[in-house]
Design a protein around this nucleic acid. Structure first.
Lengths: 299, 299
DNA sequence: GACATTTGATCAGATTATCTTATGGAATAT
DNA sequence: ATATTCCATAAGATAATCTGATCAAATGTC
């Protein structure tokens, strides 16, 4: 089969009409180039060059030269394409995000990503952890932003930061006896939760005693936003991730109270296939996400 | 630089999604293929394949696969093109012919060539030997059909057949004393010739004695056809190449007489650059021309 | 949960391809 | 006639590539 080397050598001969100078241009000796051209002619079964004091391409040689030049251009195009892709976070990246993160992080993360990585084409999909993991697995997603841990052998994760839970209560409830909330407070009024499948629901439950679990609303809300509105209307209280507080508490009349140490929290991180060669990109992505978080947690 | 081998290997991987089977298809061992793919990824600086129990192309890999497939197609196209050109007498062939041959040989040669070599694209140019030789030299012509010998160091020739000269005289001249003509007969009436530059003129003169040369018309005719008409009108006589007799003598009232042995003749042949790699084609061309000639010379 | 299977990576040695240096022959220029 | 240019050839050196054996990880089986 014709090699790219032969195409390069022949292209030089076709342009320079001189074996010696072509060899110079290709940084090889003249015999090396001559032999490759001969080999190429043998391969193709056609004379390409008419050798004499001054050389001339045959009719077939002219056509082959045209085709060779185009092929070389295409190979160069391939290399150029790759060198653009070489930089981290370029090209298409399919990112999945869980619903209890997306509305709070994306508004700040996306502009930052776009400004730092102009050639990044993000495709974002928002759904439950379970589906995100399945889509990572089948290659539909490259990476997912969600709450850790993820228990799936094929998946590798990267922890980013902790997101603490705060207690959200109706403003018309009796004023809190303490400045800080305790887990026991969850037992006193009904605990409102997201619907089944949201990891936030399970996490919240994990902080509750058995008695408060009985208090939990079995019909969950379909979004945090709804949940907070329910709290505001006095239906119960809930746990609110810190990242959502600014947005959700601001537009609803709820009282938000920090828990006593040890504060409950969830770990936010990225998940991707162990086999993915894009780990470097995901680390860069993680760095951007981390950087957009309000820096030091006030203690 | 990316080699065609790498493109072939990667193309197989991209299609089969399996290193082992791709290696089989490429008739190499799996480590050989794996190493080439790795080398390619290093060259491009981009991961192309995500390795796992089942492999998957990266986003960049998909694009590279598309480009690779196209490049391979183009290389195949180049090879196909060459294999079509491999046959003799295909593609463009620029043939020069002298005026004292063209009108007599081409009408029979061309149809024969076209039927034997459908893919031959003949370009024919008719002019004097001197210009044909110059055009061979500068590459404007591939081959010329003319009268030999050609004295030019860069030019090689191929003899085809002898074309005898016959004496053409006016029919109203006194009846010939003998059945066969002799060179001395040329001395008796004015000898008509083609204009300067036609080889036929020089050849005719070479058979004449000094005296007959004095008889020669100094204003030559511009074509054999004209020349014969001049003979027919009684202005003199001339030498006629045998190949032209059928056509020219038939439509003019001239008496054509064969010479006594040794008959004067010219050698018809092909001329081409010594360096031309198309010699095999020219031999095939010569064979066709020879075959269209009336076979055995009547003695 | 232990075990056999499959898959691609790695390694050392063998092989093949390619290159370099030196030389030759033909054509051209001085 | 001599020197020069230019491509071809030959032999030995170098570099690229391949093979065969082995490994580690992941998967599927019993």
């Amino acid at each position: 089969m014709i090699s790219t080397k032969q195409l390069v050598y022949f292209d030089a001969v076709a342009r320079l009409k001189h074996f010696g100078r072509a060899a110079d241009e290709c940084a090889v000796t003249q015999p090396a180039l001559s032999m490759q051209i001969q080999e190429m002619e043998r391969d193709l079964g056609v004379s390409l060059v008419e050798r004499g004091r001054t050389i001339r391409l045959t009719d077939a040689g002219e056509e082959v030269a045209t085709r060779a030049a185009r092929i070389l251009q295409d190979i160069e195009g391939l290399t150029d394409f790759a060198s653009k892709r070489r930089a981290t976070l370029t090209g298409r990246l399919r990112l999945g995000v869980i619903p209890s993160i997306a509305p709070y992080l994306l508004p700040t993360v996306l502009p930052e990503l776009q400004s730092q990585y102009q050639s990044l084409e993000l495709r974002i999909r928002e759904t439950l952890t379970e589906y995100l993991v399945a889509q990572l697995d089948d290659g539909t997603l490259d990476v997912a932003l969600l709450a850790l841990p993820i228990d799936e052998p094929k998946i590798e994760t990267l922890s980013l930061f902790e997101d603490r839970f705060l207690l959200a209560s109706p403003t018309d409830a009796p004023a809190p006896r303490r400045k800080m909330a305790r887990f026991e407070d969850l037992d006193e009024v009904p605990l409102l939760l997201l619907e089944e499948g949201h990891c936030l629901r399970e996490q919240a439950l994990s902080f509750c005693t058995l008695r408060s679990i009985e208090n939990a609303d079995s019909f969950g809300a379909s979004s945090l936003s709804t949940l907070v509105q329910m709290v505001a209307s006095g239906m119960g209280h809930t746990l609110l991730p810190e990242m959502s507080v600014d947005l959700e508490a601001a537009r609803n009349k709820v009282r938000v109270t920090r828990f006593e140490a040890p504060e409950p929290s969830r770990m936010i991180g990225l998940a991707f296939r162990k086999t993915s060669p894009l780990k470097a990109d995901f680390e860069a992505l993680g760095a951007v996400i981390k950087a957009t978080q309000p820096p030091p947690p006030k203690v």
